[in-house]
């Protein structure tokens, strides 16, 4: 039992390290090679966890090797488009000028139901609204609505606009985040001044957010009965 516990700890740390090594790209939509790696890693880690007869090294080695191959493969893909095309394929246009390319759908083994499901996921319930759709290499479908069906944006009504980053969390559960303050061009003295004026200490704050223009929101902690 102790051996399994220790092996679990080691493999847990290894899998976390591996996922971190693969980077954020792998945590979102998976490319074909990334999907394969994810499935393989989970299987290898499970085998090594269950079977103490297998040396731990025989579990660690393939996991690390797969992750390293994946990182190197994604780097090569970045440098060489031909390799990227070979490994990940290319996006396929399935609707152009509002016309469904049925041959392409058959080639992709995409049924009309699959197409409609993908459109519904994109918030479109009638195929007539679609000007252009593209099946991405990770299996998702990107859709562009026809001009008349696109939602109006602020720019369309010529509103006076100013681009601004969203507010950042400055205090979370009573803990002040110095780095977030610095990144917004603020400092501890400003935060303490704001809190003093609100009659609060940082320990009493559940959440405080602020942006570069010094607009802030403070939510005090609820006093427990």
């Amino acid at each position: 039992m102790t051996i399994i516990f220790i092996r679990t700890l080691i493999l847990y740390a290894l899998v976390i390290f591996s996922v971190r090594l693969m980077g954020k790209r792998q945590l979102g939509e998976l490319q074909p090679s990334e999907l394969v790696i994810t499935i393989l890693i989970s299987n290898i880690a499970t085998l090594s966890l269950e079977d103490t007869d297998i040396p731990l090294l025989q579990g660690i080695l393939p996991v690390l090797a797969l992750v390293c191959f994946e990182v190197l493969s994604s780097w090569i893909s970045l440098r060489f488009p031909a390799f990227r095309k070979l490994v990940s394929g290319t996006p396929q246009i399935i609707i152009r000028n509002g016309e469904i390319d049925q041959d392409k759908l058959r080639e992709l083994r995409f049924s009309p139901d699959d197409l409609m499901a993908s459109l519904r996921t994109a918030g479109i319930f009638s195929v007539e609204e679609v000007q252009f759709a593209c099946a991405e290499t990770n299996g998702t479908v990107s859709v562009l609505r026809k001009a008349g069906k696109q939602p109006a944006e602020k720019a369309d009504v010529c509103a006076a606009l100013q681009d601004a980053d969203p507010p950042r969390t400055i205090i979370a559960d009573g803990i002040l985040r110095e780095q977030a303050l610095q990144e917004e061009g603020l400092d501890r003295a400003w935060a303490e001044d704001v809190l003093r004026r609100a009659g609060l200490h940082s320990d009493e704050v559940f959440l405080m957010t602020a942006d570069a223009s010094r607009q802030f929101t403070i939510i005090p902690k609820e006093v427990q009965a």
Binding site: L21, L61, C68, F69, V71, L72
Partner: peptide, 18 residues
């Protein structure tokens, strides 16, 4: 960094295998 780290790990694994 990740690429070099992966390359280093692969080299270490190869050495370990041999």
């Amino acid at each position: 960094t990740r690429v070099w780290l992966s390359f280093g790990i692969l080299l270490a694994l190869t050495a370990l295998c041999i």
